[in-house]
Design a protein around this nucleic acid. Structure first.
Lengths: 205, 205
DNA sequence: GTCTATACGGGGATAGAC
DNA sequence: GTCTATCCCCGTATAGAC
């Protein structure tokens, strides 16, 4: 399948670009493990094999580094979801797929769960980023709900797509807290499947 | 109504006890506002009107202080819920009451939301406390569900009390994240009411 | 019971050498 | 592009004065 979509081939990354990637990778791991405040630029620098001054040459400060880590991971997750839509998957397929990818990538889940909690503080460096993220996710999810509900069994009371999207996002987030605290206490697929079925949306077993 | 339940009258608190209470109060406010890692013992001491050495005389360390703040607030919330049960309130009444109390006490909600996120890290000082808390809450909620479902309309698929308790807790927690990020974006009572109604449990308007 | 003084490690950030 | 050196503030914790 190589060459089917002919875009510009990626130019060989410079040394600086490769270092930058490495920094983003280790920053991701450390922020995911311990959150933002508990991790220092020095920790990240050491894990990436350079000094703390070196890291700050690549990123303006610790706050910018966090934002770029978040943005990068968000784009990866979006790509996976888009791939499912383009493949013709249903709403329920994409939802279950997202939950299952979360089970396979605990660090990514931990990153968003921990940092979003910290970010509820108004002066946290990612507060605005998360507020915007939820606005975007709610809007996209509400659209997906509207489409999915056209084919769904009508239920009583009828489903309000806006309320349902807030509700589903809350459920997904809250599940992760319990799961990270005690992995075996929770079956996320079962919980989410049960929830959307009660909205009249069929889910494959 | 004073004196209806005659228990030992509280002895006049010593100066040390009053200072202790004051420290717990300001620690609660600061932890709720900024989380655990972002707050220092010096911050707490200053806000309580003494030095950081003074605070550490009353509590063994920052971690113990956090645990006592959490425990104290948990007991307050439990008392409010117990009062509702003893008054004869239904499951739905207690649930909606809890959500509404949360709207009136944003600091309390912020405390549990922020700290539980941080506490998903295994070596966080309150990691075990939160894991135990969720075990307890899930068990209690599952019992309440079983009772409430006896009087409820049967639904399809039937409600599994264990799954439903994990699900409801997750929903409540996740809602708070969205609400703290953007208070007007979410109507917690509507979301929770909608959810439990779909489980066949009637809720007053 | 609370203070001052102090210890020591760690935090983010910057200047300037190589 | 990365380093070393340094700044200054903040972190938790303790000893001992008042």
């Amino acid at each position: 399948m190589a060459g089917v979509t002919t875009t510009t081939p990626p130019p060989r990354p410079t040394k600086g670009e490769r270092t930058r990637e490495r920094i983003l990778d280790v920053a991701f791991e450390l922020f995911a493990r311990s959150g933002y405040h508990a991790v220092s630029v020095r920790d990240i620098a050491t894990a990436a094999g350079l000094t703390h001054a070196g890291v700050l040459k690549h990123f303006g400060g610790k706050d910018e580094l966090l934002l770029q880590v978040l943005q990068r991971r968000e784009e990866i997750e979006s790509r996976d979801q888009d791939a499912q839509w383009e493949r013709g998957d249903t709403f329920a397929d994409v939802l279950v797929g997202t939950v299952q990818r979360g089970l396979d990538t605990p660090a990514l889940v931990a990153l968003f769960t921990k940092i979003s909690g910290e970010a509820t503080t108004p002066d946290h460096p990612s507060h605005e980023w998360f507020a915007a993220r939820y606005r975007r996710l709610r809007a996209g999810l509400a659209r997906a709900f509207r489409t999915a509900l056209e084919q769904a069994e009508p239920v009583d009371p009828p489903v309000d797509p806006e309320l349902a999207s807030t509700q589903l996002l809350a459920l997904l987030d809250g599940l992760q807290v319990q799961r990270l605290l005690e992995p075996d206490a929770v079956d996320p697929v079962a919980v989410v499947t049960d929830h959307v079925r009660r909205l009249g949306i069929p889910v494959r077993d």
